[in-house]
Every structure is written in structure tokens, then in C-alpha cells.
Amino acid sequence: MNIFVLMKRTFDTEEKIVVENSRVSDDGVEFIINPYDEFAIEEAIKLKEEHGGEVTVVTVGEEEAEKELRTALAMGADKAYLINNEDVENYDQSSTSEILAAFFKDKEVDIILGGNVSNDNGTGQVGPRLAEKLAIPYVTTIVGLEISDRKATIERDVEGDQETVEVELPVLVTAQQGLNEPRYPSLPGIMKAKKKPLEVLELDDLDLDEDEVEGLTETVDVFLPPEKQAGRILEGEVEEQVAELVKLLRTEAKVI
């Protein structure tokens, strides 16, 4: 099976956000594989273990993302591509999906897996946009996946309820938390990963011009939420506190 994974390098979820000149600063920030993409990588490796084939991980981003690609290779992926997106103006989700569509043009695909959102921009657009560009079906927020005879039976999370859908391959799916427990790279895995193929592609290599993939939106400003002040800790006996809280929520905060 030809299994592809879309991966993004994102800020560690522990990071506080610092804004400088209306942009998020990445000074001294720790990066990780987007947590939802980690589920996708794990599921891809499980598919390979069950059905055979090859797992290819693709990222669009800066050169530093090689580190996260190596981690994916250490987990068990077979090869990786890093598509350099520097110099694209107003880069947005339509840019990423156009670039990926160009990458997949000459690829034989059985399944593409990605995270259902990235934990930075969090739009969830790239997966469905790419599927549409490739004219293949997509199923988002999946929590279960079985494939037999080129038919995928998929469980997806729909706002807490679970929906079962069937679809023929090729298909693009996006992972929701609960799909699996991503493995840690093993030491031999890490050693092997160093020798696995990792190719860096420029837009030129995909016959793309920077202006062809320019974003359709523009970020005018970035700002932090107003700092939340610590409120009031209630005092007294438990019952007094509870009575006070109920009163405050009804008369002061007026939310009940």
C-alpha cells in the first residue's frame, strides 16, 4: 500500500506565545510534530505493518522541519520529503494545499493521512482542500480505521458522537485524538532513521512559481488576549462558600 502522511512542525504545546511586531515570535521556541499529525504517523505505520507497503511523510515548511521528519522516520516511516515554502507571500492554507497537490500529481496514492487540525493555526483546511484538488474523497476527525479489499471502514468523531462511514480507496483521512497511542522512536529506530531517504524539494522542483501559490488571505495583525486577572477566592464554611458562589453567579456575573 502507498501510504502518505502530511506532517507539520508546530510549537510545543507548553510554549507561551510572544508577539513581536504583529507576528508570533519563534525565538527560542521548542518545536514538535503537530500532536494530531503524530496520530496520523502512528496509524500509517500500523497500516504498513498490517498490509505491507511504504510510508512516506511529507511536510511543507522551513528547513528546520528536517528534525521532525527524522523523528517520523525513527518511529517507522520509510522516507520523507520536505518542501521548502520560504519566500511565498501571505502564505495560507490554500498555498499549502496547492503545493501538496503539485507534489502528489505524479504519485500513486492509496491513502493520505494527516492531523485534523494543527495546533498553531488550527483551521483544519489543508486535508479537505488537498483531497478536493486531487479529486479523492476525504473523511475528517477519524478515531478508527480498518481497510480490507480496498474498502476503508472508518469511525469518526462528530462532536462527541461516533459515525461509521465506508469509502473506497484512495482516500484522505484526518486524525482525531483517540485514534491510537503514538509510539516513541526506539533507539535502533533513531539509528536507522539517519540513513533513510529525506529529500528537500524547492517549488521549482514541483514546477510551481511563488506567485502561483500566494495565499488568498492576509494576516493584518496578531495580538495576545487581555491578561485575565485572578478573581476572588471565596471564604468561610463550605456551605457558605457555595451559597455565596450561587448568588454571585446569578447577581454579579449574571450567567445563570
Binding site: 506565545i17 488568498l216 495583525d221 495580538f223
Partner: peptide, 21 residues
């Protein structure tokens, strides 16, 4: 029109415009 949306799950916000169309 400008659109405000959370990024980093609400750790920050961005203001966006649609360039055309």
C-alpha cells in the same frame, strides 16, 4: 471586513482579511 480568530488554541489572536473575491 476584518476577521478575528484564535490561533494557538486561543493563546493568541490574529486579524485576517480576504484579499479578493
Amino acid at each position: 471586513p476584518l476577521f478575528i480568530r484564535p490561533i494557538y488554541s486561543g493563546k493568541a489572536f490574529e486579524k485576517k482579511r480576504i484579499k479578493e473575491g
